[in-house]
Write a protein that binds this DNA or RNA. Structure first.
Length: 413
RNA sequence: GCGGCCGUAGCUCAGUUGGUUAGAGCGCCAGAUUGUGAUUCUGGAUGUCGCCGGUUCAAUUCCGGUCGGCCGCCCCA
């Protein structure tokens, strides 16, 4: 069959699938608007440096998953692997945004990560994204999670998800805890899995949620982050949990929840599901108070999340049906010409009208049936002479004569 | 990046223990009195059996490679 294949890990969104895609993005956009978030977009590629500095050189995303290339001007560019760094860069690049704090934005678009594809994991995938910049208060954490919960709820996904949250503390107590953990695991290094041995250098917190049985045994005795949070971090986390409870959002505290991007502080959270295989995370994010300063901008707090559109599509309810069209089926050259004007007038009234480019009556009605039309307007020479049309209802099969100027009213739902 | 499963018509799949014309259902196309769909009936076409190479008198079937999908790990949305 030797067909042209799309690049590995990319896929086409054909109309039926795109409907679900648009449904997910539309629901997210609507809910975000209800909370006062404004939509924006940033470029699909940025200087490589932005992601390397922002996400962290040693993270998997940066060290082995980026689509990085030199352009013709010999600049190193990277297809964005996530949205947050780009939005923070836009914040720094556009001074006017610093006057609009807190800045609450919604965005959606394609992301690129060179990974081994699987269901729910493509190399080009799409995310919806929410960010709040300039709000160090726990209220922003609560709101951002609330937006997520409402979007999931509107899509019919919330009940199939669990919200897990954790605190990663501030940089000060995280550094302390990290050292405590490294010391602990170093004492058990002989029994650690190979994966975890390498994690010990890169991201020791990750060992906490290892799936390896041997690691799990060692983890049972590991010191807990909760015991090492400083007072400020403790208070912050408590405020977030209280707020979620007050808002009626169910959650579980998961001390092993650690996110893979270096910039997170304090709140980290994920909505996870068991319904789409190994790709359990449907939506995840957290607070990143140090990121903007790290990128060279004015010290500004940030919190946000990203949700995988393809994963949401796999879980969401069937989108609402599209409006059923009306088909206009003229017979003969004169009617064909006249039908163009009739169809356009009806469309101006908001009625979806399709007119085939060719075909006899049978063919046109067959196609009308195939596209799930609700009615057909049939016009031949006889009707033309009388200024009327035959209006056929496909569901009942009834057909009646309607004056041309009464068609729009007859077709209003 | 590591380990494993898989790849036959548009779709879902059967099949060839290596041997002339590779099948089914759905879908598609064409007909069943001159301007009427969906339902019914009749007929038709589906295809380099993912791609490349090897073994063989002979491969879609065996072997190797490759590309792609899927599952688990890693990682993440």
């Amino acid at each position: 069959m030797s067909k042209l294949q799309p690049v590995r890990g990319t896929h086409d969104l054909l109309p039926d699938e795109y409907r679900r895609f648009a449904h997910v993005v539309g629901a997210a956009r609507d809910v975000a608007r209800l909370y006062g978030y404004r939509e924006m977009a940033t470029p699909i590629f940025e200087f490589t440096e932005l992601f390397a500095r922002g996400i962290g050189e040693t993270t998997d995303v940066v060290s082995k998953e980026m689509y990085t290339f030199k352009d013709r001007g010999d600049e190193s560019l990277t297809l964005r692997p996530e949205y947050t760094a780009g939005i923070c860069r836009a914040f720094i690049s556009n001074g006017e945004l610093t006057q609009q704090l807190p800045l609450k934005v919604f965005a959606a678009g394609p992301m690129f990560r060179y990974e081994r594809p699987q269901k729910g994991r493509q190399r080009q995938f799409h995310q919806i994204d929410i960010e709040v910049l300039g709000a160090p208060e726990p209220g922003a954490d609560i709101e951002v999670i609330s937006v997520a919960a409402d979007i999931l709820d509107r899509l019919g996904i919330l009940e199939r998800c669990v919200l897990k949250i954790n605190s990663l503390g501030d940089p000060e107590c995280r550094a302390v805890y990290r050292k405590v953990l490294v010391d602990y695991y170093s004492g058990h290094i002989g029994k650690l899995s190979e994966d975890s041995k390498s994690r010990l250098q890169r991201n020791p917190l990750r060992i906490l949620d290892s799936k390896d049985e041997g690691d799990k045994a060692i983890n049972a005795g590991a010191p807990s982050f909760a015991d090492h949070l400083n007072q400020a971090s403790r208070d912050f986390f408590a405020a977030v949990k209280d707020g979620l409870a007050a808002a009626g959002i169910a959650f579980e505290v998961d001390p092993t929840l650690v996110r893979g991007l270096d910039y997170y502080t304090h709140t980290a959270f994920e909505f996870v599901t068991t319904h789409i295989g190994a790709q359990g995370t449907v939506l995840g994010g957290g607070r990143y108070d140090g990121l903007i300063a790290e990128l060279g901008g004015p010290p500004t707090a940030g919190i946000g999340w990203a949700g995988g559109i393809e994963r949401l599509m796999m879980l969401c309810n069937e989108p609402p049906a599209e409006p059923r069209p009306v088909v206009i089926a003229p017979l003969g050259a004169a009617a064909e010409t006249k039908a163009l004007g009739i169809a356009r007038a009806l469309r101006r009234q908001g009625i979806t009208v399709e007119q085939d480019y060719r075909g006899n009556m049978k063919r046109r009605l067959q196609r009308a049936n195939k596209i799930n039309a609700r009615a057909a307007i049939i016009i031949g020479d006889d009707e033309l002479a009388k200024g009327v049309a035959q209006l056929k209802d496909f569901d009942s099969g009834d057909q009646r004569e309607v004056a041309l100027d009464a068609l729009a009213d007859a077709l209003k739902v």
